[in-house]
Design a protein around this nucleic acid. Structure first.
Length: 502
RNA sequence: GCCCCCAUCGUCUAGCCUGGCCUAGGACAUCGGCCCUUCAAGCCGGUAGCGCGGGUUCGAAUCCCGCUGGGGGCACCA
């Protein structure tokens, strides 16, 4: 195989049983980062042995999400490569071959125990409060016994033979250091099912080796699997890869990240209008600070500074507030440099809210861009265009109840807004300066503060008390929409039951 | 029940390896204030942490032991 053994090769191996999970993306990111920092290769492998739950749609979606994040791969199911195929279901011949090798070497054996018999063993252990270990009944079957089982129609599984008197297995974890395992606590576990399909721990070993993976960065749940895998590497005469185990991301409830405490799919973040570069920056900080007193790093900088040993060992809590802040930092920068991308991040949320349908024409795009410029740094995440500026996309303005009490309940509100309406209707071109003049003039004529007009006007035009400056938003809305909304507001106020209808 | 991993502000973390520079640094969040037509942003300031108990040492967040707490594993799941 023409794969250079010196070159660093990392991989991420998702199961296509759902959309790309934040935790998975996080793990993949460090594999990718390490490969890039070592000018190595990053490989994508699909672990689709769970036929009942795996689908092609999910596989496609996962690749899409990786593309969106900006993580690329040298070898994978879509691009192929020298170590292919890159889907486990297409690699059965390899598992079969190496299982036979293990059998031939006596490192593995056929086991004819049925699931029911095994469950009974497990049950006994539970009752006796003893740790469960396979009884080893099939370890030394005679040819006659085997023949008898075969006659009964039993289909055997293949088990790995672990020696009780084996030496301590040492795992040199790149982030945790040396971890020792006594084989006494290991079990002759099944590596091939009775239907001939491989189990995770075995397929993993075969795949990582045949794909010449040099470094494996994975979740802490695999640390306990590592000694089992090391035994297989040894039996096969292979050199195991370097490993690093990271703790999993936790939700705010300090439990495994779940839908309850926030979005778990990368796709959800895309839809909400997060930026991939912000997400990646945030990912990095959940395990490591490249420099003290600094939070914002480009992917380029992260690659340059990445050191496996610097990764943290504890489980980070996914802090949505910090991600949102960080996304805002990136948004503000983009607003100056590339506002079109801010617009893009707002598209999905607008569509989702039903405020945008069909193809986005050049005019629509240009309009949204104006909205984005008026909203400015209020947009920390794409969906903020809704919270601060939905009124730019619909005439159906709903007034905030608290604000109504505050600004629409005075007797003068309706007359004042009506007067403003008339003044606005008279101008030809309603730009920000014109509105400002109108309002300031009107305020001084009425001997009131400008803000006494501004607040009710904002409510009439936007339905909200928070948002962009009144003059700017009015200019974008345009004279006609402003007049029309002021009319609606006046009418609405006059219909209020407790209004004296001045 | 057994095995493994982890433990600094509410949260992410720096410091820990190579004890003293740590009256523990930064950031998010939070609370004040400034700015201001509101909000956001920005600026200024504040609150807040070495899980506990023993050692070792002149000196421990840093080294050792125990405990507690959290997480993971012990499948014909991945």
């Amino acid at each position: 195989m023409p794969i250079s053994m010196q070159k660093v090769r990392t991989r991420y191996a998702p199961s296509p049983t759902g959309y790309l999970h934040i935790g998975g993306a996080w793990m993949a990111f460090f594999n990718w980062l390490f490969a890039r920092s070592q000018t190595g290769a990053f490989i994508l492998r699909i672990e689709d042995t769970d036929r009942t739950r795996s689908t092609e749609e999910y596989e496609r979606a996962i690749l899409e999400d990786f593309h969106w994040l900006g993580l690329d791969w040298e070898e994978g199911p879509d691009v192929g490569g020298p170590a292919g195929p890159y889907r486990q279901t297409e690699r059965s011949h390899l598992y079969r071959q190496y299982a036979q090798t293990l059998l031939d070497r006596g490192a593995a054996y056929h086991c004819y125990c049925t699931p029911e018999e095994l469950e009974a063993e497990r049950q006994r252990a539970r009752v006796a409060k003893q740790p469960y270990r396979y009884s080893g009944r099939c370890r030394n079957l005679t040819p006659e016994q085997r023949a008898e089982f075969e006659r009964q129609g039993r289909r055997p599984t293949i088990r790995l033979r672990i020696h009780d008197d084996g030496e301590t297995i040492v795992v040199n974890d790149l982030v945790r250091g040396r971890v020792e395992f006594d084989p006494e606590h290991l079990d002759d576990h099944i590596i091939v099912r009775s239907d001939g399909s491989p189990l995770y721990n075995f397929a993993n070993v075969v795949d990582d080796h045949t794909m010449a993976i040099t470094h494996v960065i994975r979740g802490i749940e695999h640390l306990s699997n590592t000694p089992k895998q090391w035994i297989m590497y040894q039996a096969l005469g292979w050199e195991p890869p370097q490993v690093a185990h990271l703790s999993n991301i936790l939700g705010t409830d300090h439990k495994k990240l779940s839908k309850r405490t926030g979005d778990t799919a990368v796709r959800d973040y895309k839809r909400a209008g997060f930026l991939p570069e912000a997400l990646l920056n945030f990912f990095a900080l959940m395990a490591w600070y490249p420099e003290e007193s600094r939070e914002i790093f480009s992917v380029r900088e992260l690659i340059e500074r990445f050191r496996l040993k610097d990764l943290g060992k504890a489980s980070p809590v996914f802090d949505m507030a910090k991600l949102t802040w960080m996304n805002g930092v990136y948004m503000r920068e983009l607003l100056q440099r590339d506002p079109g991308r801010v617009v893009d991040a707002c598209l999905e949320p607008l569509r989702h809210a039903g405020l945008l349908d069909g193809q986005v024409t050049a005019q629509t795009h240009a309009y949204i861009r104006q909205v984005v410029e008026v909203l400015g740094d209020r947009i920390k995440v794409g969906r903020d265009i809704l919270t601060y500026g939905d009124f730019f996309f619909t005439d159906a303005v709903t007034y905030e109840p608290d604000a109504v009490k505050k600004y629409f309940s005075q007797k003068t509100a309706a007359t004042m807004l009506a007067q403003l309406r008339d003044r606005v209707a008279k101008v030809d071109r309603l730009d920000a300066a014109a509105v400002e003049t109108i309002i300031r003039t009107m305020a001084s004529e009425l001997r009131i503060e400008s803000r006494e007009i501004i607040h009710p006007a904002r409510l009439a035009l936007t339905g909200k008390t928070a948002g962009p400056g009144l003059f700017e938003l009015t200019a974008l809305l345009g004279r006609d929409r402003v007049v029309q909304r002021l009319d609606s507001a006046v009418e609405w106020i006059r219909r209020l039951p407790d209004s004296r209808g001045v």
